[in-house]
Design a binder for these strands. Structure first.
Length: 562
RNA sequence: UGACCCAUAGUGUAAUGGUAACACUACGGUUUUUGGUACCGUCAUUCUAGGUUCGAGUCCUAGUGGGUCAACCA
């Protein structure tokens, strides 16, 4: 746990913690807490999953409990081991380790099959040979009760025989299903004799071709929780209507009574988490892949340079409750900046270079100057930078005719070069078009950083890069993927209409201090006054590539807008 | 014309019948060799109407608003 996480431990409890504490107080399950995170291995984990992971793992940890990882793999046509592996990797990256080996619902297929036989024998399940259309028709609507299937009163012996034949592969896909016999008039549609087993002649990533019938979610989830002796099964609100069914199976089967609790999903402004829509971004080439740094996937955020502890802190601060919510990006970015500020190695990178000549600095002379790696942390040490007669500064840091309160360089103005000397602008050169091509300055040798006795006071300090050792860089400047906080919330418009065409800007002009040649793949960096960056895996020895994680907070830019 | 869930600053989360708090944002200021960081200040009578109570954001009733449910998906 990071320092930042510790300092924000909340004393108040969310409703899940209250339930658990009440259970512990009443001696339920001997005070045992066992939770689980149950993804279907059919896609990549995203920020919404991060919240579910956080809730399950952190809550269990808080009460000395355990958390299982269980792949809810009951639909072979959608699932793949590729996803199993990426999910494991992402959970570990987030900082969590599940109890024991990863588990699979598919490993419980024999037990689930036996549960189904039990239900049939009890007269609580029947094989329905109706077509899907007929079944939908008979199901009714939320305001109109359903009607009984003509197959509803088949005898247990006949049901059992048909069910065995289903398993044996005697029937094609869709020929019939096994349904729980509950109540076709229930106001809760899920209680109107839900399908619990269907025929699918498909290859399963874990069980191969062993099965051709597969349990539905509702007939697998609660029972799997029960098999694993899960005490508190926490899922998102969309499963609320499934709880009566969950409890019904537990009761009728007489198995360990796991309990389901539902929390509200976390939504984040300007982000989407719909698998279908994320896929569309990938397929249409609007992003480079599932791990594009703009994606809401954990792999994307990892590549963006987000720290796992920042995502954990974000989950902690956004709370656990049952109301719909839309979290602001500003909170996420604030947390990311806060964490990065503690650990990022400082470096100087000029993104839009303008040549600056120090006219009174000896030609051919090069000196080495130390630069602190992190002013927040002296133990981070320092690295050396070269300084010479010609350096690069940011084009935006010089103005011929500056506005009030402009603390940067302008004719006759003084400014400090970070970690080096105070300079004063003397003149500037322009091309035919009027563009500034060069600024000429004088420097004050007695103002050297750390031993300044020049007596000169300056308002502004600028970053710079020495021309004798600076290296070129590719910078990938990322911004939010959409221009609207809820791109999927407009009935009349497709979410792609809100795609932010400036969500990626590539900069190939940047020049960086040579120290960047030595930084590692996962070392967080702060390009001073410009933002937090992380080296991208696309880097080659000839061409270093950096992704911008987030900009610095910029009160000057904000002031100028007004 | 059903059932279930939800409602506190712009956003999010607290307050467990007893002074509405914290974070982010916004705005104003102090410090600063990053216009960063740090620090200080400002911003709400809790959806509405009744009721219970000495006392209600909290409990009850009704209304209003939002969400969810009719896959052989999870």
């Amino acid at each position: 746990m990071s320092q930042n996480e510790n300092k924000e431990v909340k004393e108040s409890k969310n409703f899940i913690q209250e339930i658990i504490e009440a259970d512990i107080a009443s001696g339920k399950h001997e005070g045992r807490v066992h939770m689980r995170f149950p993804p279907e291995p059919n896609g990549y984990l995203h920020i919404g999953h991060a919240k579910a992971i956080w809730i399950n793992f952190e809550t269990a940890k808080q009460y000395g409990g355990k958390t299982n990882l269980r792949f809810d793999d009951t639909n072979p046509v959608k699932e793949d081991v590729e996803y199993v592996n990426s999910i494991k990797k992402d959970i570990n990256w987030l900082g969590y380790q599940w109890e024991g080996e990863a588990l699979y619902t598919s490993n419980y297929f024999p037990q689930l099959y036996a549960y189904a036989e039990d239900l049939i024998n009890k007269g609580l399940a029947y094989v329905d040979s109706s077509t899907p259309e007929e079944m939908a028709e008979m199901k009714g609507t939320p305001t109109k009760p359903g009607k009984a299937s003509p197959f509803r009163d088949r005898k247990p012996e006949e049901n059992l025989e048909l069910f065995h034949k289903m398993k044996a592969g005697d029937f094609p896909d869709g020929a019939m299903v096994l349904r729980a016999k509950i109540d076709m008039t229930a106001p809760n549609m899920l209680m109107r004799d839900p399908v619990i087993y269907r025929i699918k002649h498909a290859h399963h990533h874990n069980t191969g071709d062993e099965w051709c019938i597969y349990p539905m979610y509702d007939f697998a989830h609660g029972q799997s929780d029960s098999i694993e002796n899960i005490t508190h099964s926490c899922c998102s609100l969309e499963f609320m209507h499934h709880r009566p069914l969950y409890d019904w199976f537990v009761e009728k089967l007489g198995i360990f009574p796991s309990k389901q609790y539902e929390f509200a999903r976390m939504n984040v402004a300007y982000m989407i988490t719909s698998k279908r829509r994320l896929l569309k971004l990938v397929e249409e080439g609007l992003v480079s892949g599932w791990d594009d740094p703009r994606m809401s996937t954990l792999s994307g955020m990892r590549r963006r340079g987000y720290l796992p502890q920042s995502i954990r802190r974000f989950c902690a601060q956004t709370g656990v409750q049952k109301r719909d919510n839309l979290q602001e990006m500003e909170l996420l970015e604030s947390i990311i900046r806060d964490d990065l500020n503690q650990v990022a190695t400082r470096a100087m990178v000029v993104m839009d270079p303008l040549k600056l000549v120090i006219t009174n600095y000896p030609e051919g002379q090069v000196e080495n100057l130390p630069s602190k790696n992190n002013p927040q942390d002296d133990s981070a040490g320092e690295h050396m930078m070269t300084f010479s007669r010609e350096i690069w500064i940011e084009r935006g840091d010089f103005m011929i005719d500056p506005p009030k309160k402009y603390f940067r360089l302008a004719p006759d103005k003084h400014v400090r070069l970070k970690g080096a000397y105070i300079i004063q602008a003397e003149k500037y050169l322009q091309d035919e078009a009027g563009n500034i091509t060069e600024v000429h300055c004088k420097y004050f040798p007695e103002s050297k950083s750390g031993s300044d006795n020049s007596g000169i006071k300056v308002k502004g300090t600028m970053h710079w890069v020495d021309s004798t050792s600076g290296i070129p860089l590719e910078l990938r400047l990322y911004d939010r993927l959409f221009v609207d906080p809820t791109p999927t919330g407009h009935e009349d418009k497709d979410f792609l209409e809100f795609f932010n065409k400036e969500s990626l800007v590539i900069n190939n002009e940047a020049i960086a201090e040579a120290h960047l040649k030595e930084v590692g793949e996962t070392e967080p960096l702060q390009f001073m006054r410009k933002g937090y960056f992380i080296k991208d895996a696309d880097s080659t020895p000839d061409k270093l590539v950096f992704n911008r994680t987030v900009t610095m907070r910029d009160s000057w830019a904000k002031m100028q807008k007004k």
